[in-house]
Design a protein around this nucleic acid. Sequence first.
DNA 1: AAATGTGGCAACCGCCTGCTA
DNA 2: TTAGCAGGCGGTTGCCACATT
Length: 335
Amino acid sequence: MGRTPSSDKNGLKKGPWTPEEDQKLIQYIQVHGPGNWRNLPKNAGLQRCGKSCRLRWTNYLRPDIRRGRFSFEEEETIIQLHSVLGNKWSAIAARLPGRTDNEIKNYWNTHIRKRLLRMGIDPVTHSPRLDFLDLSSLFNSTQLNLSSLLGLQALVNPEIFKLANSLLLSHTHENQELLLQNQNFQGPELLLQKLQQNQLLHNQSSISQHNDQLHNQVSEIPNCTPQNVSSSSSQSMQDIMGHYMMNNDQMFQKNVMLPLQNYSYSTSDVSENSIIQSLNNNNNNNNINNNQNSQNFSFDTPLSGAEEEKESYCSNFNNFMKFEIPESLNFDDLL
DNA sequence: AAATGTGGCAACCGCCTGCTA
DNA sequence: TTAGCAGGCGGTTGCCACATT
């Protein structure tokens, strides 16, 4: 574990800590307390830099560290907080007693992030992924009547879809920037207000109106045949994504975290269930039965990179269609 | 049984921020 | 005002353990 033992130009040791070093550090801090990390290694008789000592203490030796597998509630909390705070691991860790920012970061990168990607969710923005969706090629490869779908009367040019794609991407980036600008987080209400001002919260009723129609359209897309996206799983995915998009709203109203209630799953993998739970949590408007979700949603088979992208691609198309075209979007101007 | 691939995670790196003289 | 320093933070690295071939 860790790195090859070595020393830097000042003769300070690097790499994995030995039990003896740990013991010295613990004993010193028990007597003198943490702090003044620069002088600590010298006083404690350690051939380490202060920074290394601090990291070892905060990430591993601290007595209040809670080790072991993340619980369902912890994972749920991480996902929800990440959707608000982004990669502010220390801020997330502050709300998870006993967990370190490093541990949460590792867990996110090795577990949660991959699952979100597999579900076609951008783990950065917590929105459906659009990054590799070339809409114009989709347009060319299908006979979808997208113009009527979008309520456009003008002849639809593939370039419009490229532009729309760009707009949607920038929309997503706006969301991200907004969250990043909110480092001095002043409360859920303020952020919610800003999100609404930026039209980032989507109208669920208009989404649901399109769903049935979209599902039929999507089934005609190559590589998105019912074999790949079954009717039930596709609908389930749509619903879940829709609720996911609403999840921030719910979370703010609930003041970030509340104890989980009324969840039950038929599968055994707590980690995967927690994502589903996160997607649906506290959603009063949803008509989904959680058990049904767990049946329709299969995470059991690990996906290769290509399969991962393929799955995301198909689900992305479903979810892309749930974005509303802003009323202010004037295609004449764009052309 | 050996070789290879992959995931997990502790630890390091470098940048940023805030404090102080 | 500014330079230097310490601590904090997020991103990345690289080794080990386990799984797969």
